[in-house]
Design a protein around this nucleic acid. Sequence first.
DNA 1: TAGATTGTTAATCGATTAACAATC
DNA 2: TAGATTGTTAATCGATTAACAATC
Lengths: 218, 218
Amino acid sequence: MSKNKKISMSVVRRLPRYYRFLLELKNNGIYRISSQALAEKMGASASQIRQDLNCFGGFGQQGYGYDVPKLFDELSGILGLDSRYSAILLGAGNLGRAILNHVDFASRGFELKAVFDKNPEIIDSTINGLTIMNSDELYDYCNQVKIDAAFLCLPKDSAEQMADILYNCGVRGFWNFSHYDLSMKYSDIVAENVHLNDSLMTLCCCITENRRSENAED
Amino acid sequence: MSKNKKISMSVVRRLPRYYRFLLELKNNGIYRISSQALAEKMGASASQIRQDLNCFGGFGQQGYGYDVPKLFDELSGILGLDSRYSAILLGAGNLGRAILNHVDFASRGFELKAVFDKNPEIIDSTINGLTIMNSDELYDYCNQVKIDAAFLCLPKDSAEQMADILYNCGVRGFWNFSHYDLSMKYSDIVAENVHLNDSLMTLCCCITENRRSENAED
DNA sequence: TAGATTGTTAATCGATTAACAATC
DNA sequence: TAGATTGTTAATCGATTAACAATC
């Protein structure tokens, strides 16, 4: 079904947004859309949309446009959202809890199997139907249950320790909220990094630049 | 001090990482580094590092390298981390609370002035030393206090409503965790988007692609 | 058939890497 | 001075946009 060209990361990063817009169209009962119309809706170029969607094969029809439900399904398949990758979350602090409550794992292709923390005060307590396990049990657990992905919601040093255990147990997918650089040490993994502090710095940088250029105009 | 070329977003996104590595070097008492050595440490190319740092003027010295503390200070200045931009947080749910507890605003150039929510059960309760205010008071508040940035930790629909109020009150900086697309409507703002659900989808996509290419090899 | 719109190729733009003269 | 390493220009690579033939 899908072409065998490898998809560039620039394209991959745009896919979730396409997915969201197509879901909305579908929910609004719109069954057909042209690259031009979608481009206007999304603030992108029609050319880019056609290029992007063509990475996976010709889903459109000349003179007609794209079939929304069909395109949506294809996109789900490409993203792999119908998967049930087994996942564990490490670090049930503020961030971990927020992720746990805020993110819909199942609709993004993941099944959360367990939560680990090293804080004795919260070990054995329940969160979202899962009992928080002791981090010391991580190695044994991962050798029993095949885990596809780990969500690292812990500080840099702990992340480093835990990553080593996880990698040795065969875990190759990481959603990494720490500043520990997984890809520097492990080359055959997939790591998606979310650096909140960096993101806020970027905002600060942009605001600052904005101010400076405004002042320069005066 | 800084050159007046506008810095490309690709460069801006790398700055926080430079900042982190330089801080670490500084804390380890290393006062001098060459682009080559830094490149190895960071997994980048020496050429890129020299290009990036040169956007802001020549901080290095031929035959010597870069002075770490000096470069660190320059970078802080460029990022604007010495600013005290006034900020408010909207939405004190799980995500908002995690941000509140997990992110160090002050060291990223922001001063958190207030927190708003519309849930009567938590209004007037205290969080991190700030009393949660009623969202209905947002307009009045922002007309009294000049706010530089808003952190939107609320669902899409609420984000849309609140953004309108904020924009009308002159707020131009946004750290946006919702799926509401601020930049589509407002063009003279600075918006830094963090889409956790999209990020997880990207991970799912990469894992899926990985599997497929592994299977294809067999 | 004529109009619309894709798939795809070619042209442009921007970002990264390589090379090297300048200079500490 | 000689060696090292930057700042900067040139070459390459990749991503985006434009154009248009194919075709529904």
